[in-house]
Design a protein around this nucleic acid. Sequence first.
DNA 1: AATGAATGAGCTTTCATTCAT
DNA 2: AATGAATGAAAGCTCATTCAT
Lengths: 208, 208, 208, 208
Amino acid sequence: MTKKSPSTSVKVKPRKTPRQSRAGNTIAILLEAAARVLETKGMAGFNTNAVAQRAGVSIGSLYQYFPGKDGLIVALCQRERSAFLAEAQEALQQPTGQAALLHLIQASVQQQLQRPTLARLLDFEEGRPEINRELAPFLDDMHGLIRQLLVHDDIPPQPSVEIASDDIMAIARAMVNAAGERGEVDREALAQRISLALFGYLQMTVAT
Amino acid sequence: MTKKSPSTSVKVKPRKTPRQSRAGNTIAILLEAAARVLETKGMAGFNTNAVAQRAGVSIGSLYQYFPGKDGLIVALCQRERSAFLAEAQEALQQPTGQAALLHLIQASVQQQLQRPTLARLLDFEEGRPEINRELAPFLDDMHGLIRQLLVHDDIPPQPSVEIASDDIMAIARAMVNAAGERGEVDREALAQRISLALFGYLQMTVAT
Amino acid sequence: MTKKSPSTSVKVKPRKTPRQSRAGNTIAILLEAAARVLETKGMAGFNTNAVAQRAGVSIGSLYQYFPGKDGLIVALCQRERSAFLAEAQEALQQPTGQAALLHLIQASVQQQLQRPTLARLLDFEEGRPEINRELAPFLDDMHGLIRQLLVHDDIPPQPSVEIASDDIMAIARAMVNAAGERGEVDREALAQRISLALFGYLQMTVAT
Amino acid sequence: MTKKSPSTSVKVKPRKTPRQSRAGNTIAILLEAAARVLETKGMAGFNTNAVAQRAGVSIGSLYQYFPGKDGLIVALCQRERSAFLAEAQEALQQPTGQAALLHLIQASVQQQLQRPTLARLLDFEEGRPEINRELAPFLDDMHGLIRQLLVHDDIPPQPSVEIASDDIMAIARAMVNAAGERGEVDREALAQRISLALFGYLQMTVAT
DNA sequence: AATGAATGAGCTTTCATTCAT
DNA sequence: AATGAATGAAAGCTCATTCAT
């Protein structure tokens, strides 16, 4: 086939909605297999055959549920993003901006440091337009969340909330990734360092 | 016939040292072609044939000067890194830690925002062990540089210089990359924001 | 591929123009192999691997010169069409319409009955839009040729030259194909029968 | 797992004879779906899953009624052929050979021009041995019919009735197909042109 | 009977790399 | 040195068919 599709109609949408429970299970198995392949072989070793094999499922089944490699990655991103978003949402319950930010940071650390290699690879893939496009909803949610977070009284007004939002996520992700690559395990210390950077960025005076 | 080399002995060392200017020129042309292909087609579209064609050179010639695909990437990383390092070195001439840090930030912004797509792709590739291994000298240089930078009086002592070094680079790169993806062009504003994060991280009180 | 390409950009154009004589040879070998596979295995058994194998050439080489299955078929049609057209052109040298028509018929019989299976399969493939599109020049040439042929004094004027042209080709091809399937070998008798149909169609009174 | 059956024992016989009207109905629906897929996607896009989906029936059910892909095609040919044969039979009621021939021609035009794309595709498929084999009865019927037709007094005796029979069918089909591809709609004019060719072929002097 | 999930052989196509010229 | 034809392993993906439910 054609291997490369015209960028306007890249195949990343899910293929078939399962009608039997068996199928839903297969999808989950395939996703987890994809994650594991990514973690052990990296992007270079990530291919549909490897995923199917790891899942103990035929290659045909993989294509019943995913339109191809990129579809698998998108689904994986969505899985990880949803988990993170659910955690992050709780930040809005916090009384102060500082507390909310801390919650967000901890959620980031928690999420990304759990499977650091996977997180790093998916982060990068999200940069590709084909993938990014499909994840727009999540990005919007994240921006909305941070926007709400920034209106707290204890956070100085920012010149641009959009940029601040981008920067905050970039900083947090970069530091967790760096920690992951180093094999760092002390999540508290990591969260602490991230706080320093973010509070500095937001020009917050930290209440002790 | 031989597509994937065993990961233990990847060929990334330059094949022949350019002695004639003709050869050196060809190498430069090939590297720039590689950069352009990376920028326009992304990693997925990056292949040796495409690079050779873009360079207007036969695929055979490419293999005269580079041991393979990864060798090309390594060389490209080195090209970019050297340029950056040269710039960054000058930070050491600065009298204060704050000034030095600002210089470093500006060098980062300058370097990465020039070709943001390329920078982002190479950053990621550097994460791959095969590539990373070859770039160890540069990393060491960077760490050394930052270490020297951090001993200035106006920078509070850090719990771990290694970690601080990693974090500083990670933060700067992540923010510039985010700016690049957004298409941001105001380098001064960007440098300003990075300063906030880094000064915060280092717990520096900024002298006005 | 992608297997199915969007109909607007089907890959049927030749890929690489050979610069070494070796390459031109490979192309010819591949084409003849394609013809043989078609004859022996039919369309169902016609695939790029089979063709490459039959040609004693690697599959990679096939794709250096042909963009895929359909490209191979197009090239094959062109090869056969050119040969036929060259023969058919001579019909215009004939003094009378009747003589010219006979020449055309004989050229058809000669051409198609030489490799009847191949002819029949290619005839069908030419009906597919993807293939047909590429062969437009040949069709135009054929129509032009027949148009010139029909202006002879001894051929009654036709209501529509275009339709007559289509019909003539259709009749001749169909009868030769039928003969081919039957295994008929007497070309003279076949040409004779085709003449009857065509002269009847054109309402010509045959001069004895 | 079992994709291609050995060509000697292709499964084309209907699997179960419909005893309940429900089953008969499903078969009809499947056949029409097959026809539609063929018309819209061509042979390349013709596959059992597509047919089942178009029929609104599960793939499993398709295999309950048809032994496979080829069986579907055979059944489709039979459906079309039966319809045509029924029409054509009436030619024998005609008093003269000329009238009978005209009736046959009109039946051909009527039948093939109704669904020209389908007709053309099935014509070709009938050329494949696997399919042809199953349609022998129809071919025999057609030959018998034409044989009877040719014994009329107003048709000159033919050297070989078999060959004449083949030729007549070939000419009629080819001309209708050509008309179909051109999008011609005037059936009367088409029938008229076919008559000219056939009368000429049979060396009949047309009574006005 | 009907369903549709699962299978995997088989086909298409790409691309890193080699080597004869 | 340079060239580019040739190679073939390795993916990608489809679809005829089966079979458990």
